[in-house]
Amino acid sequence: MADLTTNIGGLTLKNPVMTASGTFGFGLEFADFVDLNEIGGIIVKGTTLHKREGNPYPRLAETPQGMINAVGLQNKGVDYFIEHTNPQLKNLSTEVIVNVAGHSIDDYTACAEKINALDNIHAIELNISCPNVKEGGMSFGTSVPMVEKVVGAVRKVYKKTLIVKLTPNVTDIAEIAKAAEGAGADSVSLINTLMGMAIDAEKRKPIISTITGGLSGACVKPVALRMVWQVAKAVKIPVVGLGGIMNATDAIEFLLAGASAVEIGTANFIDPAITVKVANGINEYLDRHGFKSVKDIIGVI
């Protein structure tokens, strides 16, 4: 058994496999299928300061080897999370990370401040990359000055591990990652979904209510891998890789490209037990190649 522990900016994970926000609920939805404590970290659904109803139905289009979603950050708000959901997560012996989203810098900081007060939560993932909300979300993550502003503001109020989740819908993601690092991020995670679109030719109509949405799934992996590699070369802070990971080999490719940990997203919909299989698969790979630690393969490319 190789050493699977990894560090993502002050936070140590028992293994490098986490769940991508919005694809694993609050973890509890998957407790029948996997031992949640065998997962390196659970990043829960995007949480905002106030309750959000999200976008109208339909929110989903299946695409070749992927899907487009336009959920629009539907969630019950941070206070509901603190009062009702978090108590159910306190007994887990894995890291629970809250994905924090917002409309304004004040929203982000107020939400982060509330999460900062929770003893059992040791990190947040700052979502400045959601393509499915009209204002806020991705608009914070596409320009260097905005990234500096929002990350800097949250850094002031959030004292634990701050992971910043980046959008791939930019010209130069390395530049954005460096801006996040400069503003105090402990780690960056990438990629959020790629802006996409699906049309029903027979009906001559867009398939989802918002016309455009976020593309995820196996089809995005090559893009994600390239961006993780570019960012890992550009920053000194640890990188968390995600985008189209469907199995252990995919996850290993991200580690080789420079990710210190990975997130599994859309694959949870196809195999609700995939997370633990990937963790076991990474271990098996390390043993087979004679590596003592997962750290031995991180960023070798």
Binding site: T23, G54, V71
Partner: peptide, 8 residues
């Protein structure tokens, strides 16, 4: 499973 919130 109530995770993706697509089918609302």
């Amino acid at each position: 499973l109530g995770a993706c919130l697509c089918c609302v």
